[in-house]
């Protein structure tokens, strides 16, 4: 399995959160298909040179969020229960990105109306069919 995840250990964002975000993104984008096996904790820890307990923590949280499931002795798999989970993962990832963009815009001093205008023009650009 190619290393589809990367982490930046020097970032202030905890490594386990970086991993969770990337798995969710991969599931949302279909890079990881339902039923697909994830690397083992040990394998991923060695591939990324990060602490195995940190990887295990990310996997536990992903299980808790119902993104993956672990079969003892067989490994961890992307949950096969369909589009709903993927959409939720996509909403999580996109929601975080929108929150950050709005915070950034506000911190640059833009008023709410200006942010809305930007958002509308982005919508028009990326969803032309819904105009």
């Amino acid at each position: 399995m190619p290393a589809i995840f990367t982490v930046d250990p020097r970032s202030g964002v905890p490594i386990y959160l970086q991993l969770i975000e990337q798995v969710k993104r991969s599931v949302a984008l279909g890079v990881l298909a339902p039923g697909e096996q994830l690397p083992t904790v040990k394998q991923l820890a060695v591939d990324l040179t990060v602490n195995p307990n940190t990887v295990a923590r990310a996997y536990r949280d992903l299980e808790h969020d119902a993104v993956i499931e672990t079969a003892p002795g067989r490994g961890s798999f992307v949950r096969a229960d369909g589009v709903a989970k993927q959409t939720r993962a996509a909403t999580d990832v996109a929601g975080e990105a929108v929150t950050q963009a709005v915070r950034e815009a506000k911190s640059l001093g833009l008023p709410a109306a200006g942010v809305r205008e930007l958002f509308e023009s982005a919508l028009t650009r990326w969803f032309p069919e819904e105009k």
């Binding site: 020097r10 970032s11 202030g12 915070r103 950034e104 506000k106 911190s107 001093g109």
Partner: peptide, 12 residues
């Protein structure tokens, strides 16, 4: 007027 949250890495 402007607020930002900055992450701290381990060195910080």
């Amino acid at each position: 007027q402007s607020v930002r949250i900055v992450d701290l890495n381990l060195e910080d």
